[in-house]
Design a protein around this nucleic acid. Structure first.
Lengths: 331, 331
DNA sequence: CTGAAAGCGCTTACAG
DNA sequence: CTGAAAGCGCTTACAG
């Protein structure tokens, strides 16, 4: 068995309180006994167990990021910000992947499942979209600090991007270039970001004087990752290319879908102007024109919000930051 | 404060042992009191804290995946396998991102830092490369089950890919096509997979009768992610394109570098045949010919190995699986 | 079917 | 500078 604080204390001829003190850098330990304890610990490979410390201290010095689709490029960029910012603190970041769910009720349930175990001092909920009453019920049960990323709710600290405005700007950009049949590659209708981006597209179209009937909305398979996938974009673009009355320019709801769309165009040897959304790393190398989300900054900000709740003003009203996506022109 | 088992017990008029039993699905509880307890728990939002359970039970029902570069496409595919396989068990997966390190000593230290806290019952160490004595010293201190993925050591369960053979096959494929100046886009010389892949390349070259001097090795910036980056591949390809005596075909050590290389070729309007390594998701949509690593399978297998240690034969000798990469021809 | 009690491995006033 | 003791929130034989 791994040795415990008792083993070390016994061998060092001190009480467990003293051993605890040296590991907590309490100055009230003589240099001699500190050294003796440390040496013994080294020999035994002893270190206080986080679980026991957590119980005794009533906090774990851990922040947990909950994310539905870990294998998502958006998340990875947010994560970079999370990591960089948290490494300045004395908290550790644990990442937990929410299993597949088919309804917001299931998501709600799974969020509860992990939060109620109380494994972390605070939570970062990334790309989790719930209904108002679900957010409220969650808040009522678990009062550990939580920040929402890529989602907005008054009762929580939150950091999101204005998808409607972003999609609006992207579409308008295309319209202003003179394209008269701008289409959109969307994905699952149940996805909130998709709803917003389609809404932004429609808004720009309407404002430019197009009729409702002029809306050209295309979707590929949206069972996998809500359609935020290469294949989703590929299939949607295939439909576009087959459509004799199809778009002469396209707004695509994510970079990863654009990769698929690009391949579809390449396969048939045609090219349609495309504006995308996200600006993940590969976008630069794909030469994608896209609406940039400040993913890294969203990550650092999320940690700052949480650290503030944890160590600063715990009771201040929720802070909601909404970023405006920025058009990055390439190609 | 969150309510505890004592609150529920008191209100239900039972002992904490009984409350514990209902949450552990112990059949020795009358339906009536089970219901009463559950109802009260529901009202209070009570659930046993994982941390207290862990201490009392002496295990956490948690497996932790340690990975140096979370934002790595290779890891994401492994992760998918991890997730799918673990969801059949009653273990949870926590992911911990090892902070940046510049030497294997630092990596070693950081691995120790997290493992010694004993937060999980078992560990999956992904793409962690240490020296023999470092692996042994780690093993000596922490006897929780651990499996190595993308790394090999006799003393541990491990799952890896034969990079030398993979690179050899890729290079030979190019040589067999009649190219006489096959080059390689490598990355950091300190990276073990890179060393192996360059070795495989050299082996194929030598075997085909080329002299040592014929080896054409190119590298871009390798400070970021050991050179496993779009930019690394981009820069290396730029050098190739500028070299009048440059390669007429290239083996590239990873798909992500190939993306950069592709862009470099596109920028100058030239194209050189490329064989890559990994077969991450985007490879298909990029039309990359590549040596496929069975990343998903590596993930599922890793969980199986661990579950076996945890619940099956704890003392059997280490199992080492080495996959052979498979050539996927595209383009 | 249920409870009292010991124990998991720590931390932290409190007293000296 | 150090120790005895209570407590963190649970589980689990043991006894009934």
């Amino acid at each position: 068995m791994q040795s415990t604080i008792y083993d070390i204390a016994r061998e060092a001829g001190v009480s467990i309180a003293t051993v605890s003190r040296v590991f907590n850098n309490n100055p009230n330990v003589s240099a001699a006994t500190r050294e003796r304890v440390l040496k013994l610990a080294q020999e035994h490979g002893y270190h206080p167990k986080a679980i026991a410390q957590g119980l005794a201290r009533r906090h774990t010095k851990t922040i947990m990021a909950l994310v539905p689709m870990l294998s998502n490029y958006f998340f990875m960029e947010v994560l970079a910000g999370l990591q960089d910012r948290i490494s300045d603190s004395d908290y550790d970041l644990h990442i937990f992947n929410i299993k597949g769910f088919t309804s917001s009720d299931e998501l709600h349930e799974q969020l509860e499942y992990v939060m109620r175990k109380g494994q972390a001092d605070a939570y970062i909920l990334i790309s989790c979209h719930l209904r108002d009453e679900q957010w409220r019920s969650l808040l009522k049960k678990y009062r550990s600090p939580a920040v929402l990323v890529d989602e907005h709710h008054d009762a929580y600290d939150s950091i999101s991007v204005d998808s409607v405005q972003g999609a609006y700007a992207a579409t308008k950009y295309l319209i202003d270039q003179g394209f008269s049949r701008v289409g959109v590659i969307a994905a699952s209708e149940t996805s909130k970001p998709i709803q917003d981006r389609v809404a932004g597209y429609c808004k720009a179209m309407t404002e430019a004087g197009f009729a409702k009937a002029d809306a050209r909305i295309y979707r590929g398979d949206d069972t996998y990752r809500d359609g935020f996938s290469e294949m989703g974009g590929y299939q949607a673009m295939c439909k576009i290319l087959e459509d004799p009355d199809g778009p002469d320019a396209v707004f695509c709801t994510s970079d990863i879908q654009s990769l698929g769309a690009l391949k579809a165009m390449q396969d048939v040897g045609r090219s349609i102007p495309l504006v995308s959304f996200d600006d993940i790393q590969i976008a630069h190398f794909l030469g994608l024109t896209t609406m940039r989300q400040p993913m890294y900054e969203m990550g650092t900000l999320a940690i700052e919000y949480l650290l503030d709740r944890l160590e600063g003003e715990k009771q201040s009203p929720p802070k909601n930051t909404v970023f405006l996506p920025e058009l990055i022109v390439r190609d």
